[in-house]
């Protein structure tokens, strides 16, 4: 597991942690059932408050990415890959909806938008 925190980022630290763990779970770097460090261990390692790490874990738990078993620890939730993919698709869809409505406001045609997407898609990487 890799977590890098920026103190100058406007994004709250608990969100930075939750996001990074989440993307490592989705990418498969953190496997199902893998044990995560305790909130106290993680707080010590990252030099942050226990309250912050606790909040990050609570966020991840709420979204179903991790499970906390009382007395045992915290683990990457066993979930079905399909569902993870679906979650990711949903978030891309949301972003596209925003993009489309912005484009419409500015009078950008579908063709222009497709062209932009094509350029971005093939140039990225």
């Amino acid at each position: 597991m890799k977590i890098i925190i920026s103190n100058s980022s406007p994004e709250p630290i608990y969100e930075q942690i939750a996001k990074q763990i989440k993307s490592q779970i989705i990418a498969g770097d953190l496997e199902e059932g893998a044990a995560l460090p305790s909130i106290r261990k993680l707080a010590q390692e990252l030099h942050i408050s226990v309250i912050t790490t606790k909040r990050a874990y609570e966020e991840l738990e709420k979204e179903g990415f991790i499970d906390t078993v009382a007395g045992k620890g915290t683990f990457v939730a066993i979930q079905n890959k399909e569902m993870l993919r679906e979650k990711k698709m949903k978030s891309i869809e949301d972003q596209m909806t925003d993009m489309v409505s912005e484009a419409q406001k500015m009078g950008i045609s579908l063709e222009e938008l497709q062209e932009m997407l094509l350029i971005l898609y093939s140039s990225d990487d």
Partner: peptide, 11 residues
């Protein structure tokens, strides 16, 4: 300060 944080491993 690191030492204090170490103590807090015990909840």
């Amino acid at each position: 300060l690191d030492f204090l944080r170490g103590i807090m491993q015990d909840e």
